[in-house]
Design a protein around this nucleic acid. Structure first.
Length: 749
RNA sequence: GCGCCUGUAGCUCAGGGGACAGAGCAACGGCCUUCUAAGCCGUGGGUCAGGGGUUCGAAUCCCUUCAGGCGCGCCA
């Protein structure tokens, strides 16, 4: 069984990518390694919170308009389930911040005014941030909407609204701009101090809510992880961190398909190609996942050259499922050792898992048998009495989404009595929601990054007590978009069993695959046809051994980073340089993996990936390191240190400078203030790239700001104070963003 | 065939009813005795795939055409 990993090597067309060049020199005095305190989520682990009684989270379609976050159509959900967009949005909404509060008050005042004056008001009154300075601090296009209803000129309506707008605290002026915008000017000094206080205050305490399970990574344990798996893991890990940021209890699961064909293929490779068994496998030195990567490609070649060898699969698979014989022992060894390799790889980039559910344990714990009984009892599946599919158990599926299904039904149990992939996944999904009358036994597997424990299901007696696993109120499955169809069937299965609520709270977090640019493929030694060379990307293929291994990419990034560090700090101790290089390479990799919208194929280009300039992780790290450097330098000079800056921010002890500078100070501050808002929106739409874009834009604005307005050198204590506060707030919010994206903060660069 | 996704600057991508369409890279020109040049500032570069429509207003919504990708199995 191939679980969640697709095979096939069909090249696909896309546009070219350009290459990038570089050069740099420069040396600075040596300092320390990366800071340890800025790494990983500080929020409580799922285990400490997960015990609480389950409370349903209202759910439903989230995302923009009618588009579901999975990108799949819900042709008939509008009829079957209530349009429950609001509740989930509400649980994520951050507590009102100062600017948000003012926006709300303006909207409320507008609604009252409109009703009073015109006897009507739109349901939702937009109050937004104007795109340019000189258009007010806040703006509303409500007059345009009213123009339609009243059949009058928008500018005229805006004028009337502006003239009769009631006084509000913090608001100093209302005016008309453009073709009919209402522009609001705030008392910036007051608003800035309120904002600063809020940003500097500790985040609101986590509210008690149901547990959320995030399933991601799910790499078949028969080869090394490649860059496609990195995209999955980084997205899944970032999502988990964001959910924790809002106080949710999150349980991360990494499903291990240890009984599938892919593992069987490696067993056959050992037997048929290497003529080896368990003892020799155990004796393989070095990176076992990399060893199997090559072996897997050889097995594929063997199947092509000697098709009869493929026949061994059936018997090996049978042995794996029954856990009998030498093949089974070899497979178990292979899978476990490779899973450890995968965890090593993911630990490098700070990805942690709470639980590894093994498919063999799902079989051993009879999850499917239990689910099968449920499905039969609820008549969610029916046995086919005659015809081509006689003896199969099928699930009826309707709607345009399933229009192409043969007979309008999906086979869940084959005529030979074995269960399909979808069937097993329905059982697994039921378990995640606590709807299955079955459970695993558990044991500790190993410690993850930050010494957090990773647990595993087990065939042994298990260990008690163990953290409570499963029983979630909401589930996200991070699986690439090519499995959207199957994920939709799993959700239909929940509905068919009468679990409409859980179906609405099952989210397929779909994202596009990672492919190679033709240039990258050729760099890996792949011979391309002229046609292939014209394509924008070449799909990777684990079976053919075509792809960039995750560890290889990380190694290349580290090497590159080490070289950059060395040219800048020739006197740095090697181990310190290595630590910096690691932090920088992880930052580069993780930023690269979240910066793109999830529904775009990521065409991997070596030069682009290895670039540390422009919109990259190191750019963000550099901005943060330099901001931190300002405080280090000020502390040494006896100037205000971090502690004093924090006090100033909290006590709102600063003023904005006058004139043109005010605009830039204000713009930076309001942008700093939008972390929570941005993250909330990113989670609602599952568009995590928004966080990356936000952090990049903020870093850009800060870089530009402190270049123009030096902090230390400022002579006027009032303006210096404002800059110190802004720098402090910038650092604090960027560190939040780093933590969410898993980007480490190097001690120096 | 049916379903889903994509098409925006030379390249890679943001923006998904609202003010003159943005960024990075690439190109060109400036800035290192002044908090780190992995940086900053500036210049050039666009028929938002084409065509209809809705709207005070469309890159954005609807229809349609074109181009490309993915999916549709008693595989996983």
């Amino acid at each position: 069984m191939i679980r969640r990993c697709r095979r096939r090597a069909r090249p696909a067309l896309r546009r070219d990518r350009t290459t990038t060049g570089r050069s740099r020199r420069r040396a600075t005095p040596a300092r320390a390694g990366p800071r340890a305190d800025s790494w990983g989520p500080q929020e409580p682990s799922a285990h400490s919170i997960g015990k609480r009684k389950r409370r349903p989270i209202a759910g439903g379609t989230i995302g923009r308009g009618s588009r579901s976050p999975t990108g799949r159509s819900h042709g008939n959900t509008a009829i079957r389930s209530p349009p429950a967009a609001l509740p989930f949005v509400c649980i994520l909404r951050p507590r009102r911040r100062a600017l948000e509060a003012i926006k709300q008050e303006i909207a409320r005042a507008l609604a009252t005014l409109l009703n009073l004056r015109y006897g009507a008001a739109p349901d939702r009154i937009a109050v937004e941030y104007p795109p340019q300075p000189g258009m007010g601090d806040l703006a509303s296009p409500v007059a345009f909407e009213m123009a339609r209803r009243l059949k009058r000129a928008p500018r005229q309506i805006a004028r009337e609204l502006a003239d009769s707008f009631p006084p509000l605290p913090g608001l100093v002026r209302v005016d008309v701009g453009g073709a009919g915008y209402l522009n609001f000017d705030l008392d910036r000094g007051a608003a800035a101090r309120a904002l600063a206080r809020e940003i500097a205050s500790p985040p609101p305490a986590a509210e008690e809510r149901g547990k959320i399970i995030v399933e991601h990574t799910n790499i078949n344990p028969n080869k090394a992880a490649h860059i496609g798996h990195l995209r999955n893991a980084v997205l899944g890990d970032t999502l988990s961190r964001c959910l924790r940021f809002f106080g949710h209890a999150v349980e991360v699961q990494n499903y291990i398909d240890d009984t599938g064909v892919q593992v069987a293929d490696i067993v056959i490779g050992f037997r048929e190609i290497l003529k080896q068994g368990l003892a020799e496998a155990q004796a393989v030195a070095g990176k076992f996942d990399s060893f199997c990567w090559d072996l897997y490609a050889r097995v594929t070649e063997m199947y092509e050259a000697r098709p009869e060898t493929r026949d061994r699969r059936a018997s090996v698979l049978k042995h794996l499922e029954e856990r009998e014989g030498a093949d089974s022992g070899l497979a178990a060894y292979v899978a476990r050792r490779i899973v450890n390799c995968h965890l090593d790889t993911m630990a490098r980039i700070g990805v942690h898992y709470d639980l590894l559910p093994w498919e063999s344990d799902i079989l051993a714990c009879r999850f499917w048998d239990t689910a099968f009984e449920l499905l039969k009892k609820r008549r969610a599946i029916e046995r086919v009495a005659s015809g081509e599919r006689e003896g199969c158990w099928v699930m009826a599926l309707e709607g345009p989404r399933f229009a192409d299904l043969k007979e309008g039904e999906k086979i869940i149990v084959r005529s030979n009595g074995t269960v399909t992939y979808v069937g097993k996944d329905i059982a697994y999904q039921l378990w995640k929601f606590g709807l299955l009358d079955a459970d695993f036994r558990y044991e500790p597997f190993r410690a993850g990054p930050g010494s957090r424990q990773t647990w595993s299901s087990t065939k042994g007696p298990g260990v008690t007590p163990h953290p409570p696993f499963g029983g979630a109120a909401r589930v996200y499955n991070v699986i690439d978009v090519r499995q959207a169809y199957l994920q939709a069937i799993v959700v239909e299965g929940l509905k068919a069993l009468g679990h409409a609520d859980q179906a609405a709270r099952s989210t397929h977090f779909a994202y596009e695959m990672v492919a190679l640019t033709p240039a990258s493929a050729e760099r890996l030694g792949v011979a391309l046809s002229g046609e292939d060379r014209g394509r924008a990307y070449i799909e990777m293929s684990g079976r053919r051994g075509l792809g960039v291994k995750a560890d290889d990419l990380l190694d290349a990034l580290e090497k590159q980073a080490r070289a950059e560090v060395r040219t800048r700090n020739p006197d740095l101790a090697p181990e310190e340089g290595d630590a910096l290089a690691r932090a920088i390479s992880v930052g580069a990799l993780r930023y690269l993996m979240v910066k793109f919208t999830r529904n775009k194929v990521l065409a991997f280009d070596f030069d682009e990936a290895l670039s540390f300039e422009g919109e990259t992780g190191p750019y963000l790290q550099y901005a943060v390191v330099r901001a931190g450097g300002i405080f280090e330098k000020m502390a040494k000079a006896g100037g205000p240190d971090v502690k004093i800056a924090a006090e100033w921010a909290l006590e709102a002890a600063f003023d904005l400078p006058p004139g043109e500078a005010a605009e830039e100070h204000w713009a930076l501050l309001t942008q700093i203030a939008r972390v929570r808002e941005t993250v909330a929106q990113a989670v609602e739409t599952l568009e995590l790239s928004q966080i990356a874009k936000y952090a990049f834009n903020l870093a850009q604005r800060f870089n530009s700001f402190y270049h123009k307005y030096p902090v230390m050198q400022e002579q006027d204590p009032r303006w210096k104070q404002a800059r110190v506060v802004l720098t402090h707030l910038f650092l604090g919010q960027m560190r939040h963003a780093f933590q969410l994206m898993g980007i480490p903060e190097p001690a120096m660069m």
